[in-house]
Design a protein around this nucleic acid. Structure first.
Lengths: 238, 238
DNA sequence: TCTATTGTAATGGTTAAACCATTACATATA
DNA sequence: TATATGTAATGGTTTAACCATTACAATAGA
């Protein structure tokens, strides 16, 4: 029914006030908070307590703190960074396995592909085609550019998510993608046939999106995720 | 290529040392850290700096801090709590709409239902049946217990997510559910037929899960979400 | 006049010592 | 034996001082 009434911790109150201002839009990304010595007067608290509050806000990714003249707390706005970081911690703590990630990602990438196919504009398609060409170029340029290929691949997945115009798909996919790519780099053998297979999947996917075939797009995306997860598992990832 | 080399902040070093000890298992959930006045000696830092470090660890959900004799920092281990909280912040900040949430939830609840049907144990089913009976009782007890019905309904959705045994499904669904229920309470008319319809959906869903019919479970879950989102939209939610 | 150097003041980072508020546990009392 | 009370441990907060870094202005040199 009720949660335990927490003892009032002053810094917590300060955190909530500033966070609320950011979430509600009163403070926008790029805005600068007054220096600590002024803020502490505004809240009528000591500098130490204020700094604990700023530390929490910094940890949440809501502000960035710079030293020096004209330094101070700069508002950053909410980003996927924090979701990503906490998920990363979970994975390292072995609470989330590669299978868990893959299983989740199959549904997610499928939905994203299907919705993208329903909504992609000509601009979206042009952007995707551009990224595909860029990836292909890296692939042809040889081994030392394959890192760039992988990064472009991730970029394409994100671009597809963006054509859904649903911030949830975008942020969740960004988080999962980022974490999957950590595995990618460690466990996917960097061999040309595999990268070519990867690229061909993407080409097929974008073609399906362009042709407005949601079901086909979903199937291609899900197959792709399944196949590459299997590749990684063969490399001995638990 | 490289990230900017951050200036060494002492509290950051302390955070990393303690976090590493937790993630690597040297510190386990339930373990108690020495009191601040001892810790500060161990790290040879001031109490203020130590407290900034503890604040960050607390914010990350890695420790819990209690006052009083025998209080102090208790290790909590890594949990999904932080993922949920940051995702929650993201939803509030990005002003994710009911449609955005519903669209995302359709795929998610479908996947969850299907995987639950594949994996549910006898215990899982018993638990779900128990919750369903509890919900039905609240429904029969009349209007003033309908709040409890709604809360039990959310509990059932979470219990289904838990039978997937995939922490990703669990924490993401928990977050989405929590946010959807904010809308629920504001926009869903509290009328008996609607609540009965809701309950019947859940009964059907659990039956499908019990009978190991993933596809049917997926369809029921998705229909349910679609129908109730439509109900809310009729109430004029953007 | 333009550029490179140097100075300086603003600002976050850290330390230290003191006192307050809460609470588990021991002790005393009915 | 059970309840009330005392007490010491522990986190929460304040204050004041000093250090480290840095943007910007003043200065010097070409």
């Amino acid at each position: 029914m009720f949660r335990k009434a927490k003892q009032n911790r002053i810094f917590q109150d300060v955190v909530e006030q500033i966070q609320e201002a950011i979430v509600s839009g009163k403070l926008k990304a790029g805005d600068q908070l007054p220096p600590e010595r002024e803020l502490k007067e505004l809240f009528t608290i000591s500098r130490g307590t204020l700094r604990e509050a700023l530390r929490v806000l910094e940890q949440k990714g809501l502000i960035e703190i710079r030293t020096g003249v004209a330094g101070g707390s700069i508002v950053k706005g909410v980003s996927t960074q924090q979701v990503s970081e906490s998920l990363d911690l979970l994975i390292r703590y072995k609470k989330v396995s590669l299978q868990n990630l893959a299983e989740f990602r199959i549904g997610l990438e499928g939905d994203v592909a299907a919705h993208a196919a329903e909504r992609a504009t000509a601009d979206d398609i042009a952007r995707l085609r551009g990224l595909i060409a860029k990836a292909a170029a890296y692939l042809d340029k040889g081994r030392e550019h394959w890192d760039s290929f992988i990064r472009t691949d991730e970029e394409i997945h994100l671009a597809i998510a963006e054509t859904t115009h649903n911030p949830l798909f975008i942020s969740v996919l960004a988080t999962i993608s980022h974490n999957i790519h950590t595995y990618y780099e460690s466990y996917l053998p960097m061999e040309e046939p595999l990268l070519r297979e990867n690229h061909q999947d993407i080409v097929n996917l974008v073609t399906a999106i362009e042709s407005r075939r949601p079901d086909e797009a979903r199937t291609i995306a899900q197959d792709h995720v399944r196949r590459f997860s299997a590749h990684m598992e063969q490399q001995g990832v638990r």
